[in-house]
């Protein structure tokens, strides 16, 4: 097969939006390849890159554990596959998560990003917001952040780069080839974050 093979984890959440954003980012950059919805370990093992969408992290985590996908994704990350996790996706990529109100959580995680996540860090849905951010380190000077019951990053290890902050809160990070955002780039018409990601996949490939 020519080109890159990018999968969108399609257990639950805004899968179609990520398929579309990834597809359009590849088209605009002239990168060849396929974008497909992936649900089971066999599909995941063939991937060059993976996007974990927004949704409920407890649901995506629990059902990925049941299907064996969680273990497969871990192996692929260990072998260097680039991953983009938005909102719930970033929570799943982390080592530790707690909820702002309920406290420490025992939920299935991918245990990769050396960070602690605070879930629902900005409050409940009424407090969900949009704001213009910048991700200068990856060459994006202005990006509309759509935060929906969003998490934030509260503790970071030494290998983790901070890509963006909203006031004092860390809202985008990168560790190796793995990127996590508190916000939903797939819900805006701006493809900059997805373009950065597919470029990463192409380089790795």
């Amino acid at each position: 097969m020519t080109g890159v093979n990018i999968g969108i984890l399609s257990i639950q959440g805004d899968v179609a939006e990520n398929v579309s954003a990834t597809r359009m980012a590849m088209d605009e950059l002239g990168i060849e390849g396929v974008v497909s919805e992936v649900k089971n370990p066999e599909q995941i093992s063939d991937l060059d890159g993976l996007v974990i969408p927004g949704g409920e992290s407890t649901v995506i985590g629990t059902l990925s554990l049941v299907s064996g996908s969680l273990k497969k994704i871990k192996e692929k990350i260990a072998s260097g596959m680039p991953v983009l996790g938005t909102c719930a996706g970033m929570i799943l990529l982390s080592k530790k998560a707690k909820d702002r109100v309920v406290g420490e959580m025992e939920q299935p995680l991918l245990d990769h990003l050396d960070v602690k996540i605070e879930r629902n860090a900005f409050g409940r849905q009424k407090d969900s917001f949009e704001a213009d951010l910048s991700l200068e380190k990856i060459g994006i000077s202005k990006f509309r952040g759509v935060f929906i019951r969003a998490p934030s990053v509260i503790d970071i290890g030494k290998d983790v780069e901070v890509l963006s902050r909203f006031n004092e809160k860390i809202v985008a990070i990168k560790q190796g080839n793995v990127i996590g955002t508190s916000f939903h780039p797939e819900l805006t018409a701006d493809l900059a974050v997805h373009k950065y990601f597919v470029t990463l996949v192409q380089k790795k490939n």
């Binding site: 899968v15 939903h184 819900l187 805006t188």
Partner: peptide
């Protein structure tokens, strides 16, 4: 806060 993107976006996170 309270834009259509945020309200409808919230519902999108429930899909499936």
């Amino acid at each position: 806060r309270g834009t259509s993107t945020l309200k409808r976006g919230f519902a999108h996170m429930l899909k499936n």
